[in-house]
Amino acid sequence: MVVNLLPLVLGLTAVTVGAFFDVVSAIGILKLPNFFTRVHSVTIGAIGGSVLPLIGVALISIALEDLGPQRFYLVGTSIVGAIFILILAPTGAHSLARAAYTMCQAPRKPLIYDALENMKEGASCR
């Protein structure tokens, strides 16, 4: 069995670090007090917990030369998926938080600095 050791170790490391991020994100969803902080924790789970493992899967499939030319499809799919999640997850979190802010659906209690306060859309709440 022919295996390139360096990409294999790097890929396994990336997958392990991704699992750590997933655990941190799950703890954050359970423990954080506010809607906005929980959205932040979900985004950590999406970026660290799925983009890093996808890049790790790409590296592992480069390492396994027994798979033949089929493994480059796997590499391409993983990297394209990682790029899409990298673009879309923060945008989704941004839209969610902004909608919750402007519709006054979430409490803004532990808020220290409010950049949207003086804007027209944020002012009408309460």
């Binding site: 673009i87 879309l88 945008t91 941004h94 839209s95 902004r98």
Partner: peptide, 13 residues
Amino acid sequence: GLSDVSKSVTVVI
């Protein structure tokens, strides 16, 4: 429409 961040990402996606 929504905010500028969403608009620029939608233009790409």
